[in-house]
Every structure is written in C-alpha cells, then in structure tokens.
C-alpha cells in the first residue's frame, strides 16, 4: 500500500467536509484495501467513517425499512425484519463473499465495490476503467466472467455484487449526503453503464457519501428466489445470478420483478418487459418471454457466449422457484 494519512470524523458533515479528490471513505475496507494492495487505487487520505451514526435499521413512515450505510452485510442478512419481510435481500447477501467478509463489509460499501475484471485488477495491463484511454484487453482476452449486456467499446466489466441484485429487484432507494445536502437516488439510477466513461461506476458526485438504503413497503416476501450460478458452489462471484420476485393472484401474475447479476456493469432489469406479464398465468411460457426480453440484444465474447443461454434458463428457473415460495 502507498502511504496515506488517516482521519476519523464522528459526524456526517465533518466527514463530507474532510473529503478531497484524493481521499477515499473507508468502512469495511474489504474491497478498498485489496485495491490499494494491488496498486489499483492509491488515495492520499482515508476517511474512516465507521464512527458515524449510520448503524441502525429503522422503520420508515411508509412501512419500509431504512438501512444505515454502516450496517454490516451479516447483520443485515440476519436481521429478523429482513429475514422475515425481505427474504430476497437476505438470500442475495448470503450468496455473496464469505462469512468473514460479510462481517466487515457494509451496506454502503457493497454498493461501491468495484469490478473483479482481471485486467482492472492488474495494474500492469491497460484498462479503460482504471486508466481511461489505455484500452480494454478483456474484449479479446480472458472474458469468461464478463458482460453480455450493456457493455461498450471501452469496457465489458460486470458489477460483482449479489446484494445489489436483490436491492435492484426490490426497487430500493439510495440516500447520499454531499456538501450540497442530501439526495435520494432510485436504485436503477445509482449504478451506470460504462459507455464512454467506464471509470465511473455510479452516479455519485465527488465526495458524496452513501448514508442509507431504503426499502419500500412492498417486499415480495411470499414469492421470491435468488439463484446464483458460479464456477464453484460457494465463495465465488456469479457467472449469472437472478433475483426473482412475484405477486400472484391464484396462478396469475399480479406483479413481477427480475434483476440479473454477473451480466452487466449494473444489476440488469427491464421494467417494461416485466409489466407485459401482468395478468398472465405464472408459467414457463410467460417466464421464457420475460427472459427473452431481458436478454434481447445480448452480445457475448470469446469465452462467455454461454452466459446468454445460461441466463435465459436461470431466469425461468428462478421465477419457477419463486412460484413455490421464498427460496
């Protein structure tokens, strides 16, 4: 790691005021310190936000939950309210990382973790995300784990989070605080596609701090599934993951949500295609149509063509599982 200075504010405004362009906020640190050891990131100052009052899970006035940015992944996944009312989120979190990492990693940090693209992580190779304009060796290189949707000439990396796939399906809201005050960002607008600025993973302005994530009252606790397909059974990033959520009226779809992980620079959804299924029987024909719509325009590379068919089957399977209950 490069040398850096350290600050430990106790208030949110104080933390935000300490920020400089060469600073990074640190909480769990499980991704940031790894990136610093790999010489991918070299901040001059770390602002330790772990003493800020952002550790609670509170009920909101509209019947949802407000999750403080510092709530650890373990505490969130095992919170009785989350397990009971938002099982999709609990299952998504527990599908990611290892118990040790989940004990340190925070809600805010999970949103901000960076891609595990091999070339991004290897500071000796070009990478448009790490060093804009240097090129993307992944396009013609090792790209088994890379994107099939929403990629650009400049970047084919995927967002690595499981938790975010669950949050995307649940239509969460991200609360951030900057020097200009507080902002609420719809989850779908928080992460971004790489386009011509692959160095930007999300829509945060410099110095803005994630303070909370809000879950709406609608929780899909009766019919939901998180399905994660990976190269080994545990402790691996997703090749494809699916957060599926249904509201059923008898056997008829009243509401459906599907978010995909491991396939794009952000959790992938298609609300228009979801809406087309309302009123249809909850069967494999309908699920297959939604899968086709979600994967419309998918383009694979040398090593990851298989992901397109894998994703299609995973979507149908996850939705079929969700019909059975919360799995």
């Amino acid at each position: 790691m490069n040398p850096f200075t350290y600050a430990r504010p106790t208030g949110i405004d104080e933390a935000v005021s300490l920020f400089t362009p060469d600073s990074r906020y640190i909480a769990g640190g499980t991704n940031l310190l790894d990136l610093m050891k790999e010489n991918v990131t070299h901040p001059e100052q770390l602002i330790d936000i772990t003493r800020l009052p952002l550790k609670d899970i509170e009920e909101t006035t509209d019947g949802g939950l407000r999750i403080g940015a510092l709530v650890s992944n373990s505490d969130l996944a095992w919170d009785a309210r989350i397990e009971q009312h938002y099982p999709l989120l609990s299952k998504a979190i527990l599908a990611g990382a290892s118990p040790q990492l989940r004990n340190m990693a925070t809600t805010g940090g999970n949103l901000l973790q960076r891609t595990r693209c091999y070339y991004f992580y290897d500071a000796d190779t070009p990478c448009n995300k790490r060093e804009p304009g240097s090129g993307c060796p992944a396009r013609d290189g090792l790209n088994r784990i890379h994107a099939i949707l929403g990629h650009s000439e400049q970047c084919i990396a995927v967002h690595p989070s499981d938790m975010c796939v669950g949050l995307a399906a649940l239509d969460a809201t991200v609360i951030v605080k900057g020097r200009d005050g507080e902002r609420r960002i719809a989850f779908a607008d928080f992460h971004r596609l790489p386009g011509n600025e692959p160095e930007r993973d999300n829509t945060l302005a410099d110095g803005e701090l994630v303070t909370a994530v809000e879950l709406p009252a609608e929780n899909f606790s009766t019919h939901c599934a998180y399905l994660k397909i990976r190269d080994r059974q545990s402790y691996a990033f997703a090749l494809v993951s699916v957060a599926a959520a249904l509201q059923l009226d008898g056997g008829v779809i009243r509401n459906v949500r599907v978010a995909l992980g491991g396939v794009a620079h952000k959790p992938w959804r298609n609300p228009e295609a979801e809406a087309l299924l309302v009123g249809r029987p909850a069967d494999k024909a309908a699920f297959g149509e939604l899968a086709d719509a979600l994967l419309a325009g998918a383009i694979g590379f040398n090593d990851n063509q298989f992901k397109i068919e894998l994703a299609r089957r995973a979507i149908v399977r996850a939705l079929s599982d969700a019909v059975e209950g919360a799995v």
């Binding site: 350290y6 640190g29 499980t30 310190l33 330790d48 990492l101 340190m104």
Partner: peptide
C-alpha cells in the same frame, strides 16, 4: 470472525 489482512489496525 474477520479477515485481519483486509483491515487496517488504526481503525
């Protein structure tokens, strides 16, 4: 339980 390699002591 945590990974002691991925956290800095000063925190």
């Amino acid at each position: 339980r945590i990974n002691s390699c991925l956290t800095i002591a000063v925190m």
